[in-house]
Amino acid sequence: MNNRKQLRQHIRTLRRSLTPRQQQQASQLLLTNIRHRTDFRRAKNIAMYLPNDGEINPESLIRLCWKLGKRVYLPVLHPVLHNRLWFVPYTAKTDMIKNIYGIKEPKLIPHHRRAAWALDLVLLPLVAFDEKGNRMGMGGGYYDRTFSFKALRKGLAGPKLIGLAHEIQKVKELPTENWDIPLSSIITDTNSYP
Rank of each mutant, 00 (worst) to 15 (best):
L68Q: 09
E55S: 01
L29F: 06
D53C: 05
H36A: 10
S60Q: 13
T32H: 14
R63P: 00
R41H: 08
K44W: 00
P58F: 09
Q23K: 15
L50Y: 01
Q23L: 12
I34D: 03
Q28D: 11
L64P: 05
T32Y: 13
L50E: 00
L64V: 07
Q28M: 04
P58C: 08
T38S: 11
K70L: 01
G54H: 00
F40M: 03
E59R: 09
Q23E: 11
H36N: 13
N52H: 10
E59C: 15
A43P: 09
E55C: 01
I62L: 13
D53G: 07
S27E: 04
R63V: 03
K67Q: 15
R63M: 04
N45Q: 06
K44L: 08
I62S: 05
P51C: 01
L68D: 05
L30K: 12
E59M: 14
E59P: 03
E59K: 13
W66I: 04
I56S: 03
H36Y: 10
Y49E: 03
N45T: 08
H36S: 11
T38W: 00
L31F: 13
L61W: 04
P51V: 01
I62G: 10
Q23F: 08
N33W: 01
L30F: 05
S27N: 06
G54N: 03
I34H: 01
Y49D: 00
Q25E: 15
A47M: 06
A47R: 05
N57H: 02
R37Y: 04
A26P: 04
E59D: 08
N45Y: 06
A43W: 12
N45D: 13
R35G: 01
K44H: 07
R42C: 06
M48S: 08
R35I: 11
E55P: 02
S27R: 04
S60M: 08
T38M: 02
Q25L: 14
E59Y: 09
R63W: 07
Y49F: 15
R63A: 08
R63C: 05
E55L: 05
A26G: 13
R35S: 09
R37C: 14
I56M: 05
R41D: 03
Q23P: 02
W66R: 07
S27H: 07
L30C: 09
M48R: 00
I62A: 09
R63K: 13
S60G: 07
A47W: 02
Q23M: 14
K67A: 13
M48W: 01
D39V: 09
R41Y: 08
R37D: 10
N33F: 02
L64T: 11
L64F: 10
S60E: 06
T38Q: 06
I46S: 05
Q28C: 06
L30Y: 07
L61N: 02
S60H: 14
N45A: 09
R41T: 09
S60I: 11
I56L: 04
L68N: 01
L29T: 07
L68W: 11
A26F: 02
G69Y: 11
S60C: 03
C65G: 14
N33T: 10
S27T: 07
G54M: 02
